[in-house]
């Protein structure tokens, strides 16, 4: 339905997006994963016809949208990273305006406003000014505004940044409902791995402007199929012990998180004896040892050498 072909954007000496090719099939939910500065927002700006690419193409149903963006604009709903609303107006007034932009009027406009307000759970507070809403409620109106014209494709640029867990869950549930129940095609960008794991069928991983991996969640995790993750929790942080453990033969990658140590090791490696031996030598108390199957976070770590939220 929607595809990009070798999309590139260069700002003076910086290449923000480099040769990115994505495909979104109708009804699919696709994640675009990457740390801050990976080029996700720039890619989205080009896909949504907001920014012209330096080279490459964006196609909707096989037709390029770069010269004639109208078709794309009619079917596309974009939820920006910023709260792009008029805060001195109410949610109802904001939605009325965004509906009018797409030619809605009269009863149809009113019905659509009611529907999207119900969808985001703000029907009973529609008359309140947006500036008086919590961050989570503002995010929900941000989504509702993109839904006013019944878009076929919904692009979301980190829509859950800075909101409380309750609003985040509500938002994720809404998106899941739109995708599964209404068949809406979704492109979801985030640096929250668990959101992408929860929502998306397929994932593109971006770093430094390039797509470095793509596939279903299972396909990506298979990259680490011969490995496992060992999470060891201690009673406190032992920098020297952690360094020593990271150097044990077979450890491919290690991450320190406060008083925990995460090690990626080849599947079947026998290292527990060495672990407890070293812990005893340093007088450290092991509280918990957990052997996990790899997550997308681990995949990202393996591919880029850094964490998503670095």
């Amino acid at each position: 339905m929607l595809e990009t072909d070798k999309l590139t954007k260069q700002f003076k000496d910086t290449i923000a997006v480099d040769d990115v090719s994505l495909v979104l099939k109708r009804g699919e939910s696709v994640g675009l994963l990457g740390p801050n500065g990976a080029g996700k927002s720039t890619a989205i700006a080009m896909i949504s016809t907001l920014m012209k690419p330096s080279s490459g193409d964006v196609r909707l149903n096989g037709k390029s949208v770069l010269k004639k963006p109208d078709d794309m604009r009619r079917v596309l709903g974009v939820v920006p990273q910023k709260i792009a609303l008029y805060e001195e107006l109410s949610a109802y007034e904001n939605l009325k305006f965004f509906g009018r932009l797409y030619g809605l009027s009269g009863n149809k406009l009113e019905q659509r406003i009611e529907y999207v307000l119900e969808l985001v759970g703000l029907a009973d507070r529609k008359k309140e000014l947006v500036k008086n809403y919590s961050g989570g409620m503002q995010r929900r109106v941000n989504l509702a505004a993109a839904m006013m014209h019944e878009p076929e494709v919904l692009i979301m640029d980190e829509p859950t940044v800075g909101i409380d867990p309750q609003s985040r869950n509500h938002l994720l549930e809404t998106i899941r409902k739109l995708n599964r129940d209404e068949g809406m095609t979704v492109l979801y960008t985030s640096h929250y791995m668990e959101e992408v794991e929860k929502l998306c069928d397929r994932v593109y991983i971006m770093d430094h402007g390039k797509v470095i991996a793509e596939g279903t969640k299972e396909e990506l995790k298979a990259i680490l199929s011969d490995q496992e993750t060992v999470l060891i929790e201690f009673d406190q942080n032992y920098p020297e012990l952690f360094k020593k453990l990271s150097e044990i033969e077979g450890v491919q990658h290690s991450t320190i998180e406060e008083q925990s140590l995460k090690l990626i090791i080849p599947r079947g490696t026998r290292m527990l004896a060495a672990l407890f031996h070293e812990a005893e030598r340093y007088g450290a108390q092991v509280i918990n040892v957990n052997v996990q199957t790899p997550t997308l976070e681990d995949v990202f770590l393996r591919l880029t050498g850094r964490k998503l939220r670095d």
Binding site: S48, L50, P80, K82, A84, L85, F98, L101
Partner: peptide, 13 residues
């Protein structure tokens, strides 16, 4: 600054 301008640009207006 707030992004509503961009929202309008990607609408049919």
């Amino acid at each position: 600054r707030t992004g509503t301008w961009s929202r309008m640009i990607i609408s049919p207006v």
